[in-house]
Amino acid sequence: MRIYVALTFITSFVSPCGLFAQHSYLPSDIDDGRRIYETSCGTCHGAFGDAVPGIDLGRGQFRRAKSDEDLVRIIRSGIRDTTMPPFNFNESQATMVVAYLRNMTAMPVDRNAPIEVLGPPGDATRGKVIFEGKGKCLTCHWTNGAGNITGPDLSSLNGGRGRRSPAELRRSLLEPNAEVRPENRTIRVVTKSGATSTGNLLNQDTDTIQLLDPKLGLASFMKADLKEFELVPSPMPSFKGLLTDQESADVISYLLSLK
């Protein structure tokens, strides 16, 4: 399998290029719609709009909507007897979401990601060899029922809610601390007696913190018992200079080939 790391350069003006789009939208509306989408819609529909079977929001594949007006109505009213709930948006907000849906294929999910005109094509077979060999990725990571628990599970980056774009993966590989997803954060706690624990932040509330310390296992702390707690840099090393562009593309191809 070959993955071409190619993203379209987005200018400050975004034209209505989504399939079946019926209106022109301002870039500011599209951007506002993206923010609403990510907080309200993406949890079910996924970052790419294709997490619900049979629906691909970014490519104009809907079950019931035939127009932008239909989409606005469905967003605000929901669909009875389905898991699509009504959202308490006004018409303007719902229209912003539609503006984003009609343009989401043209926008990178990570707006801060470096934009590449073209990367080398990757080869998943070569990528597997690098992933398990030179890259020593299984020292920390987990894929398809095996590996280590220190790092994130990389088994399903090409589907559902965990889906990642090639650009995101490339950035994680080369600049791992540029943006760490909330579920992959590393936290270090120090108890009032001086004991420390460092691991993947799993959960927290007003009073407590839960983490997975590779040495201690699952651990829960009362914040009142801690001298300090803070997020620390990801233990993921940068592979800039360690892997060639071609090797990086191969690894990314391999990761996106996993199911």
């Binding site: 108890t191 004991a195 420390t196 624990s197 829960s220 702390f221 009142a224 018992d225």
Partner: peptide, 17 residues
């Protein structure tokens, strides 16, 4: 109090699991 933390204090950084 957090008893998991308490155990950690008592036993130091050793495996709890």
């Amino acid at each position: 109090k957090c008893f998991r933390a308490l155990i950690l204090i008592l036993v130091g950084v050793t495996s709890l699991h």
